[in-house]
Simulated scan of single mutants.
Amino acid sequence: MENTDRQEFEFDYVGFGTRIGAAIVDILIIVPIVLIIVFMFKDIIIQSKEYSIFFRIIINILLVIYKIFFNVRYGGTPGKLATKIRIINDRGCYITVDKAFLRLLPSLFYTVVSASAKHSVGNDMGIGLSLLLDLIIIFDVSFIAFNDKKRALHDYLAGSYVVTNESLLRRQGSKSKDDIY
């Protein structure tokens, strides 16, 4: 027998524009920090190509940690928090570390391959590879426009959804104790 006391709850899913706004806020936070680090270590960085590559790897690792930490702990990076959106799983909970990592796979792939292309292949080949990678990123985010839950390819990989904080709070307020645990 179906329980009719429970009402089906629908989240307010977030589209491309708000996600871009969140990304801009994150950039405004991250870029000054990176510039300070670059300035502090500029003498080491400009010594050789190897130091430059090593420095890029360190910065990218820090960015991955930043994104995973905030997505798991707070349901989004500071940019998402500022734009009042959250990343959740299909149960309405913040995503786990493994799911946060899966969400990053397309951008990590892009970063690693484009950095490798710049340092190891010829200029024409590197430009062609960069264009191909740009198309992959466009393909990833274009998914948002073509499904009712506004999920990008990386959301499908991680089983995640980007929703308004308001709809998440409404949902949490409507859950019974049994639904939460």
Score class of each variant (00 low, 15 high):
V141T: 07
N165Q: 13
F70E: 11
M40F: 09
R73T: 14
K42C: 02
Y51Q: 09
H154A: 12
G79F: 04
F41R: 15
H119R: 08
P106R: 09
Y13G: 05
A152M: 03
I33L: 15
A117R: 01
K149Q: 12
Y94D: 08
M125T: 08
G128V: 02
I58K: 04
Y181R: 12
V72G: 11
F16L: 11
F9Q: 15
F101K: 02
V38A: 11
L135M: 11
K42R: 13
V113W: 08
D155G: 04
G92P: 02
I65Y: 12
L168G: 01
I36T: 13
E166Y: 00
E166S: 03
I137C: 01
L132G: 15
V163S: 01
A145W: 01
C93H: 14
L133F: 02
E8P: 11
Q172V: 03
G126D: 13
L81K: 14
R19D: 01
I30W: 05
S160C: 03
L157F: 10
D12W: 00
D179L: 14
T77L: 05
L169S: 08
K150G: 06
F41N: 15
D43H: 02
K67V: 11
P32N: 10
D178L: 12
I57G: 12
K149E: 12
V38S: 12
E8M: 11
T164N: 01
R6H: 06
P78H: 15
F143K: 03
F70A: 09
V14D: 04
T96L: 06
S176W: 08
L63I: 05
S176F: 10
G17L: 14
I44A: 04
A23G: 09
K99R: 15
I95N: 05
I137R: 04
I88Q: 07
R103C: 03
L108E: 14
L133T: 00
N147W: 00
D140T: 05
N60M: 14
R56Y: 12
D140V: 05
